[in-house]
Design a protein around this nucleic acid. Structure first.
Lengths: 146, 146
DNA sequence: CTCATTTGGTTGAAAGTTGAATTAGTTGCC
DNA sequence: GGCAACTAATTCAACTTTCAACCAAATGAG
C-alpha cells in the first residue's frame, strides 16, 4: 500500500505537470486527447460517439467541449447523411494547425517529465505491466456485465 | 509515444475503476485521500494548509470539500488558539467510522484492480520508476523556481 | 405497418474546480 | 509602537464536469 500511495502521488504530479506544460497552447490533456484522436482519423472526421469512446470522455462532456472548441474554430460539426441522428466531428484547418503546433511540445514534455528518466528496459516493463492491468480491467468490466 | 499513450489510458481506467469502487462509500479518491491523511495525523487533527499539501489538493478545494464533509458530519473545524488565522481540520467519530469502513474495501479494490496483477518484482520496479520520476519532477519544479 | 425499444446526441441544472481577490491575523524591522 | 510584508483560510466569479431528462431517428418484433 505504501508503494501504491507513492505511485498515486507521482502519477498525479506527472499529469499535473503535463497539463501545465500544455496550458501554453490553451489545451488541457483531455482536449488534447480529443483533438489528437480526431486528427488521426481518416479525413480528420469521426462520429461523436466513437470519438467520445476512444478519447475516454463521456458523450455529454464531448458535446460541451465541442461547443467550446467549435467557438475557438478548431472543429466543426457535420450531420451524418446515413443516420440523421448522428453527427461527425470534423477538425478544421485551424484546429489542425493548433494540434500540429502543440504536439511536439507535448511530446517533449512527456519525454522531459517522464520517458527520459526511464531506461529502455523500464519502458518495456512498464508497457507490459499496464497492458496486463488494462486487460484485467477490461475482463472485470465485462464480468460485471455493464 | 505509443507506450505512453497506452499507459495514460490504462492508468485513467484504473483510477476510474477505483473511484467507482469507492462510490459505494460515498467517497471519491480525492476525499478518501484527505480523510486518510487526516486519520493518520496525531489526534486525527491537522492544520488546513498542511492537510491540503499532503493530500495534494488546493487550499480552496479543501475548503469546499471540508464544507461538504462537515455537513456529512465526518469532520469539523476548530480554530487554532496559537494562530487565530488558522483552523484545524478534525475528524469526528463518525468520520473515523466511515473511513475505517471504507478502507478495507478500498485496499481490496487496489489489490484486485492492480497489485494482484503484478509480480513482486514488478512492484519493486514500479516503485523505483515512479520514485525516480517524482524526484525529477520535484527537481524540475525547484529549477523553475516557483 | 406500428408501436415499443434502443441509440446518437444535446441540453440545463447542479455540483465541482480553479485562481484571483479578500479578510483577518502575524511577523519583522526600524 | 507602527507599518509594510507575509501567511492562513475563505469567498467569489468563471468555468468545467456530471447527471438525468430529453428529442429525434432507427430498429425490430409482432
Amino acid at each position: 500500500m505504501k508503494a501504491w500511495r507513492s505511485y498515486i502521488i507521482a502519477s498525479r504530479r506527472l499529469l499535473d505537470a503535463l497539463d501545465a506544460d500544455l496550458a501554453g497552447h490553451d489545451l488541457t490533456m483531455a482536449d488534447y486527447e480529443v483533438l489528437a484522436q480526431l486528427s488521426d482519423a481518416p479525413d480528420r472526421r469521426m462520429r461523436m460517439s466513437e470519438l467520445a469512446k476512444i478519447a475516454m470522455v463521456s458523450k455529454s462532456r464531448l458535446s460541451h467541449r465541442m461547443k467550446v472548441m467549435e467557438k475557438a474554430g478548431w472543429v466543426r460539426r457535420e450531420e451524418c447523411e446515413s443516420d440523421k441522428r448522428g453527427y461527425f466531428a470534423v477538425m478544421t484547418e485551424k484546429g489542425w494547425k493548433a494540434i500540429v503546433k502543440a504536439a511536439p511540445d507535448h511530446v517533449d514534455s512527456v519525454r522531459n517529465r517522464f520517458v527520459d528518466h526511464l531506461t529502455v528496459k523500464d519502458q518495456e516493463e512498464l508497457a507490459k505491466i499496464f497492458d496486463r492491468v488494462q486487460s484485467n480491467l477490461r475482463d472485470q468490466y465485462i464480468a460485471e456485465d455493464k
